[in-house]
Amino acid sequence: MTSPTAASGAAPILELRGLGRVHGSGVTTVHALRDIDLTVSAGEFVAVMGPSGSGKSTLLTLAGGLDNASSGQVLIEGTDLGTLNKSQLAKIRRTSIGYVFQDYNLIPALTAAENIALPRELDGISARAARKEALAALEEINLTEVANRFPDEMSGGQRQRVAIARALVGDRRLVLSDEPTGALDSETGEAVLALLRKRCDEGAAGVMVTHESRYAAWADRVVFLRDGTMVDQTVSPTAESLLASEVKR
């Protein structure tokens, strides 16, 4: 296993150091994740692949501070989540990390703009300023027409794009997505990937769990998990890409 490589020169946003998660004890012990080292820098998009039960979602859950590691460390922009108390952890989850789930997790009673504005209001900014930011976020993804629609009045692709806008509104630099294309058709799934890719190109760090290689191929690096262990990863793009000498425009 080669050591994880970060995008050259960019600041690390997420660092997993010797990360492990054990469920149960004694004969029922299950090592969901073992000794994971992974660094994801600003501007980098990493896909995590592996069969069911390989630890993909556990990795994402730990990286997002939604569960506690049994061993090792999770650092978000240099802050070790293990050293934080509950309210500090809640704050970093709210202000530094965006989550995108397969089932969107939009609040049904709020419009698209209100869903996007909500985390900013929780950050403490005024409702008016939060709405302004939400509308700007919708404009950026060419979805201003859904601003006042409720989730059940939007298509799956629109809901997921709104969820991504919500995940990255404000100063959030890390976006964690779990099968974000799961329920979408091929073309809509691709639009979602293009949006995640764009956000990373603009400076966010992204980690996406997926079982679809076609979507994983949008990432800079693909990490392969097996039985909770990182068994392989592709390297970030280089000038010596496979096609450089073969397929050219």
């Binding site: 692949m49 290689s213 397929v247």
Partner: peptide
């Protein structure tokens, strides 16, 4: 996967 990354770019 590496080839797919290149094609996708």
């Amino acid at each position: 996967l590496k080839a797919m990354q290149d094609y996708t770019r």
